[in-house]
Design a protein around this nucleic acid. Structure first.
Length: 428
RNA sequence: GGAGAAGUGGCAGAGCGGUUUAAUGCACCGGUCUUGAAAACCGACGUGUCGAGAGGCACCGGGGGUUCGAAUCCCUCCUUCUCCGCCA
């Protein structure tokens, strides 16, 4: 959620930014928010004045009774009676105003960073860095990962259908161990890079889903356990970031760097066909996430550090990848700047997104009430939140299987060999 | 799942219808004293909101109600603790 003071004080920047998201009526929307906020202030002041008078009179009534002046007390009491009606009326108006204010504020996405290019969709994203090396060229008979999965007993989608439904892969044998090796590798690296590891709950309450912005907008994305009013997390970002909900940090607490491995659950009814075959898009997948809470002056340094870190992971795995700076039309609603990481999937001959690293500036923090105390002024200010996948497993596995297939078997990246206990995946 | 108790400022802990704008202690911060530190003393010491400011208003687990007036009474939900049951 954007801050109203930002809308008021930095309106040109806000409008310019929203234009990059192709929001045509941003001007009216911002004006409407400000006008509602004016109403809110006016109502608040009127209400406060009423309450102040009521408080004074109530105190007087007490005194008058003590002094035995019952008549005067009665007059005052009548006056309070009329105030009460006023108060009720004002409270209703204020509640309604606040509700529509919030509704309209939620309708505004984050203001993109100045470096975000304008653009309509994914075709307008900018290649920020290419780490492609020489894209691997596969020989005759190279197979996509879903065929390799059968041949090598890596995972089974059919079994997942039997147990649960479409989009729930069942990893087995060396595939299951490969998965575990990747998780361990990612967590070990995060630990080395100074991220504190958490094992968070996989179900969160409504407040948490609201805090990171999944609610009310993206309700359909999450599995909802209605009996207990809980949501299965679509990403570890939700529990990890909500750790800091309603917190006030000291400047000395920065930098906050945490990580966690969780399964992620996404309902998104995707399209069908080659795009979603195999592990390309599933309802449940494993991911290691890194989250940061940053000082506003430092958050973009932190973002670039995260980008370098994620790139390092892909280098270590020997996967060709590129980094995209998302354009305004493709940048997520709550993000100010997002870098997507895509690995080359050699058999499918296409790029697969494996990570998204974003700075949300104060957009999430405003929702979360995540603040820090400015050491100089002693005032509280909203902190910046950032997160990134490091990394999402299924597409990494897809690329590893495809890119590393040989006549003899599938080569395991060196950094995983010790964890897996084998240097090659072998046919069943 | 059943029975009982409790949720107050960073922590501890009073207050149980109107001198509470929440006592007091500890912690933290500033100062005096000191070569330095400790101790002692003085001061400041929650969050949000409206206001240029003075100051006002709201918040005592969440929500609702009673009352001229609620931290205090009532209802409801949540959480924690104790006991019982079930259980990896």
């Amino acid at each position: 959620m954007l801050e109203i003071t930002t809308l008021r004080n930095e309106k040109p920047r806000v409008l310019e930014g929203l234009a990059k998201r192709n929001i045509t009526d941003a001007d009216q929307k911002v004006a409407a928010v400000i006008s509602l906020d004016d109403d809110r202030k006016r109502l608040q002041t009127e209400l406060d004045d009423m309450l102040a008078e009521r408080n004074t009179l109530s105190k007087q009534i007490g005194d008058l009774f003590k002094q035995g002046k019952a008549d005067e007390a009665k007059t005052a009491r009548e006056r309070v009676g009329t105030i009460k009606d006023e108060v009720a009326k004002l409270e209703d108006q204020l509640r309604d105003t606040k509700a529509s204010l919030e509704e309209q504020l939620l309708d505004l996405p984050n203001v993109p960073h100045t470096s975000v290019p304008a653009g309509a969709g994914e075709d307008d994203n900018e290649v920020y860095q290419a780490h492609e090396g020489d894209l691997p060229v596969l020989g005759e008979g190279a197979k996509p990962h879903w065929e390799l999965a059968d041949e090598y007993d890596i995972f089974s989608l059919e079994l997942g259908v039997k147990l649960t439904g479409a989009g729930f892969p069942v990893f087995r044998g060396q595939g299951a161990r490969l998965q575990r090796a990747l998780i361990t590798f990612f967590l070990n690296e995060a630990h080395k890079a100074g991220y504190e590891e958490f094992v968070p709950p996989l179900l969160v309450n409504e407040d948490s889903a609201r805090g990171t912005g999944q609610l009310p907008d993206k309700e359909g994305q999450m599995y909802h356990v209605t009996k207990d009013e809980l949501y299965l997390i679509p990403t570890a970002e939700v529990p990890l970031t909500n750790i800091f909900r309603d917190e006030i940090l000291a400047e000395t607490d920065f930098p906050v760097k945490i990580t966690g491995f969780t399964p992620c659950f996404r309902r998104e009814a995707g399209s069908y066909g080659a795009h979603v075959r195999g592990l390309n898009r599933v309802h449940q997948f494993d991911k290691v996430e890194i989250v940061r809470v940053a000082h506003p002056d430092k958050s973009y340094d932190d973002l670039m550090e995260m980008v370098d870190y994620v790139g390092g992971l892909l280098d270590a795995l020997g996967l060709p990848f590129r980094i995209l700076r998302l354009c305004g039309g493709d940048t997520g609603f709550v993000s100010a700047l997002t870098f997507d990481f895509e690995v080359w999937s050699a058999a499918q001959q296409r790029w697969l997104e494996v990570s998204s690293v974003s700075n949300f500036e104060t957009y999430q923090a405003n929702r979360l009430k995540l603040r820090y105390r400015d050491a100089e002024t002693g005032k509280t200010r909203l902190a910046h939140t950032l997160n990134g996948s490091a990394l999402a497993l299924p597409r990494i596995i897809a690329a590893l299987l495809e890119n590393n297939q040989t006549e003899e078997g599938i080569r395991v990246p060196e950094v995983l060999q010790g964890l897996l206990g084998q240097a090659m995946l072998v046919r069943k």
